[in-house]
């Protein structure tokens, strides 16, 4: 039981990660692929924040009478990662719009077919 409460968080995080990866691999629609990539990204955030959590710790804001704080370093790294993540998402979606203009479709199969007939 101890082993379960120690690790269930990581297992669910890995499950979410694999759902994201599966979406990226198996779905042909480019918007769906970007969503899968985002799910993967958020689950990596969970992994970092889980590692930084301390049992019974408070949020890392200095307060009178609080001794135990959670680890602030993963929070900083993930703050940066979230903002960079939305920048890359915007870039990916701009590419999708551009592909739609050139190929008139955002389905991967149809793009491949058009590439081969050219």
């Amino acid at each position: 039981m101890d082993f379960f409460t120690d690790h269930y968080n990581y297992w669910v995080v890995i499950f979410l990660m694999m759902v994201g990866l599966y979406t990226v691999i198996s779905r042909g629609n480019l918007i769906k692929k970007v969503i899968g990539l985002n799910i993967f990204q958020v689950s990596v955030f969970f992994l970092y924040i889980s590692i930084g959590t301390v049992e019974g710790g408070a949020a890392p804001i200095i307060t009178e009478g609080v001794e135990l704080y959670s680890n602030p370093l993963p929070h900083v790294l993930i703050l940066t990662a979230i903002v960079v993540g939305v920048a890359t998402t915007a870039l990916a979606l701009a590419l999708v719009v551009r592909i739609k203009e050139s190929y008139d479709t955002i389905e991967e199969d149809e793009i491949h077919e058009l590439d081969h007939t050219l």
Binding site: T53, A58, A59, I78, L79, I82, V86
Partner: peptide, 21 residues
Amino acid sequence: MDAPDVAFTEAAVGAGISTVL
């Protein structure tokens, strides 16, 4: 998980801006 700053950013950027984009 005691990360309010990350939660703010995720709610504003992840749930807000990403969805709108």
